[in-house]
Simulated assay, not measured.
Amino acid sequence: MKKIINPYLGKKGYKCICCSPDNPIGLHLQFWEEGDEVLTKWSPSENYQGWVDTLHGGVIAMLMDEVAGWVVNRELQTAGMTTRLDIKYRQPVMTTEPLITIKGHISAQRRNIVTIHLTLENAKGEICDEADATYFTFGPERAKEMGFDGCAVEGEE
């Protein structure tokens, strides 16, 4: 498993709720590449509940959407935007979980439209949620305008 270097660090105005280390109310997610998958691990808390001790479905969607973006950044070396996110909530994710893992990989690609399959696993490794994200990827010029100039893993810089 290789740690992905955040390509947006130091960019003016970068305060992503999910991955910016400089957002005081953010999740401060970090990402890894393992084979053809990109993943993140996160410890939920009661601050993110919908129902008592249950992770809010909107937070789950945000986590899935974020991993999809990092799959595009790392695996396709570009940026883009989510155009669709279909989530299947299979079982509750508890805010008392010590650690959850969200994984994603490219399941289909046709020109600049990419489908990313995502899973959310609890600490026992059980899949609690699955999603398919459709992503519109940018060409190199547009990606650069958006602040993207490559996404490396540690040791690859």
Rank of each mutant, 00 (worst) to 15 (best):
residue 46 E to V: 12
residue 85 L to S: 14
residue 96 T to D: 08
residue 91 Q to T: 13
residue 83 T to G: 06
residue 45 S to C: 14
residue 77 Q to P: 02
residue 101 T to W: 02
residue 37 E to P: 04
residue 100 I to F: 02
residue 94 M to P: 05
residue 75 E to S: 14
residue 71 V to Y: 10
residue 52 V to G: 10
residue 51 W to Y: 15
residue 75 E to A: 14
residue 92 P to D: 07
residue 82 T to E: 06
residue 60 I to Q: 11
residue 87 I to T: 12
residue 53 D to T: 10
residue 39 L to M: 14
residue 83 T to E: 11
residue 47 N to I: 06
residue 44 P to S: 01
residue 37 E to S: 14
residue 54 T to F: 05
residue 78 T to S: 13
residue 54 T to I: 13
residue 61 A to P: 05
residue 57 G to K: 02
residue 81 M to S: 05
residue 50 G to S: 04
residue 95 T to M: 05
residue 45 S to L: 08
residue 70 W to H: 08
residue 97 E to K: 13
residue 101 T to F: 00
residue 89 Y to T: 12
residue 64 M to Q: 00
residue 66 E to W: 00
residue 101 T to E: 07
residue 45 S to Y: 08
residue 50 G to P: 04
residue 85 L to I: 01
residue 41 K to S: 15
residue 85 L to W: 06
residue 46 E to A: 11
residue 78 T to D: 13
residue 102 I to Y: 03
residue 101 T to A: 08
residue 79 A to R: 01
residue 102 I to S: 03
residue 58 G to L: 03
residue 37 E to Y: 12
residue 42 W to G: 09
residue 52 V to N: 14
residue 73 N to P: 04
residue 103 K to D: 09
residue 61 A to S: 15
residue 104 G to N: 14
residue 63 L to S: 00
residue 58 G to W: 00
residue 89 Y to E: 05
residue 98 P to M: 07
residue 37 E to H: 05
residue 88 K to P: 03
residue 52 V to R: 15
residue 86 D to M: 04
residue 73 N to Y: 15
residue 40 T to Y: 01
residue 92 P to V: 00
residue 54 T to E: 12
residue 103 K to P: 08
residue 68 A to N: 05
residue 63 L to N: 12
residue 80 G to L: 08
residue 78 T to E: 09
residue 80 G to N: 03
residue 65 D to L: 01
residue 57 G to I: 00
residue 64 M to D: 03
residue 84 R to W: 07
residue 59 V to C: 09
residue 74 R to V: 01
residue 84 R to N: 15
residue 73 N to F: 14
residue 89 Y to H: 11
residue 44 P to W: 00
residue 46 E to P: 06
residue 72 V to S: 04
residue 97 E to R: 10
residue 94 M to T: 15
residue 76 L to Q: 08
residue 53 D to G: 09
residue 97 E to Y: 08
residue 68 A to T: 06
residue 101 T to Y: 05
residue 47 N to M: 04
residue 70 W to F: 09
residue 42 W to H: 03
residue 49 Q to I: 12
residue 92 P to C: 11
residue 93 V to E: 09
residue 58 G to F: 00
residue 43 S to N: 13
residue 36 D to V: 02
residue 99 L to T: 11
residue 98 P to D: 15
residue 75 E to R: 14
residue 98 P to H: 12
residue 88 K to Q: 03
residue 66 E to P: 01
residue 63 L to K: 08
residue 39 L to R: 15
residue 53 D to F: 07
residue 97 E to P: 12
residue 81 M to W: 07
residue 62 M to A: 12
residue 53 D to E: 15
residue 43 S to Y: 02
residue 90 R to H: 06
residue 93 V to W: 03
residue 48 Y to F: 14
residue 74 R to W: 11
residue 66 E to D: 01
residue 63 L to P: 10
residue 60 I to S: 00
residue 76 L to W: 06
residue 37 E to N: 10
residue 104 G to I: 12
residue 79 A to L: 06
residue 69 G to F: 03
residue 83 T to Q: 09
residue 84 R to C: 07
residue 96 T to C: 05
residue 59 V to T: 11
residue 93 V to S: 03
residue 62 M to L: 02
residue 95 T to P: 01
